[in-house]
Amino acid sequence: MTLCARDIVLNNRLSNVSLSLDPGCITAICGPNGAGKSTLLETLVGLLRPDAGEIRLDGSGLDTLKLRERARRIGYLPQEHEVAWDVPVRNLVELGRMPHGDTSSGPVDAALRALDIEHLSHRRAQSLSGGETARVLLARVLAGEPAWILADEPLAALDLAHQAALMRLLRQAAGEGAGVVIVLHDLVHAMNNADRVVVLDKGSIAFDAPPAEALSHSAIREVWGVDVAWLEHDGKWALATR
């Protein structure tokens, strides 16, 4: 039950990236702008085909899986929150069931409840705020009940309370056995919430370790070129730049 990348090379954006992701934990992908974080995530989902190397899901090559089968196992949330038509929220969330060929109300209701958006279910998409839209689109991913949740900057449009709630939700999903892989710009969230941090720099993996090691001040200085200090309070970490 692993998602593996083996020697991935992609058009000068990723070079020889190899990693093996395990279910049941939260893996954060961090790195400076242009490091290849979103590219790696899209390659893991199967949206980008690597020039060399391969992605394997549970022992099978991602390319060999049928599109629907792949979609049932991997739920993907992109960074852009595009909703082209003013459709009802519930219909958007129901799209998550598309790989299963149904619109079962159970998983859809559960996803609406988990994201605290039941009251929005009859609203139209274009009447929502940015944060509400972000939660609706994540609910769409959860409604598909995927074994893997791959999300690109899922916290970006959320307020503080919903950021914390979302991280609790992802932790719960990981606790129930799902593999969670998130691209994060915010190193504090990665430090406090991830089990493992993969730091990308110029398309290669610079560090792949538990957060305290991958985001140590020396690692941050090396990759981001910034001097920082981690400050601890009640077992949680805050970041100060020098």
Partner: peptide, 20 residues
């Protein structure tokens, strides 16, 4: 029609939902 519905969320999401 159903594939067009998925495209509402963009081409990348439609593909990730299994749309060819």
């Amino acid at each position: 029609g159903q594939a067009l519905d998925a495209l509402t969320l963009g081409e990348a999401v439609a593909r990730s939902l299994g749309v060819n």
